[in-house]
């Protein structure tokens, strides 16, 4: 296969894909999708949030879990970065702290797939010392 170097090469890939797949109807069932938001402000990035996001994108796709992975800003838990907010369909959002690859794997295997909570949740009632 030739190297992909131009938008025309990309288009060839796209056409191949388009003929193979049935377009996923994500937007029609937003309530059934797992939402993962990775904290990506200065604090998150400095702590490796990009690797965490990459892991979630790759792994959720690998395991064929219907999910949307996006970036979000700083949630104020800079000490616990990278932080990840996971919203399972029909449930409240849960924020996890110190999410490296190992933690991300645990979140996917235990929380997202089985719905069981794991250690490392930042309670929503948490307040900083100033509040």
């Amino acid at each position: 296969m030739t190297k992909i170097k131009t938008v025309a090469d990309l288009k060839r890939i796209k056409d191949e894909v388009q003929s193979k797949i049935k377009l996923r109807e994500n937007s029609d069932h937003p309530e059934q999708i797992v939402q993962v938001k990775v904290g990506m402000a200065t604090c998150g990035i400095a702590s490796g949030a990009k690797e965490t996001m990459k892991y979630f994108v790759d792994e959720l796709e690998q395991q064929a879990i219907d999910a949307v992975v996006t970036q979000t800003g700083c949630m104020g838990y800079c000490y616990a970065e990278p932080t990840v907010e996971v919203t399972l369909p029909g449930k409240d959002a849960v924020v996890f702290g110190y999410v490296n690859k190992e933690k991300a794997e645990e979140i996917i295997d235990v929380y997202i797939k089985r719905g069981e909570l794991i250690d490392g949740v930042i309670p929503i009632t948490f307040k900083t010392i100033d509040d």
């Binding site: 190297k3 992909i4 938008v7 090469d9 990309l10 890939i13 894909v17 994108v57």
Partner: peptide, 9 residues
């Protein structure tokens, strides 16, 4: 496939 192709490009 699209993601991999864009990044490869």
């Amino acid at each position: 496939e699209v993601r991999e192709a864009v990044i490869e490009m």
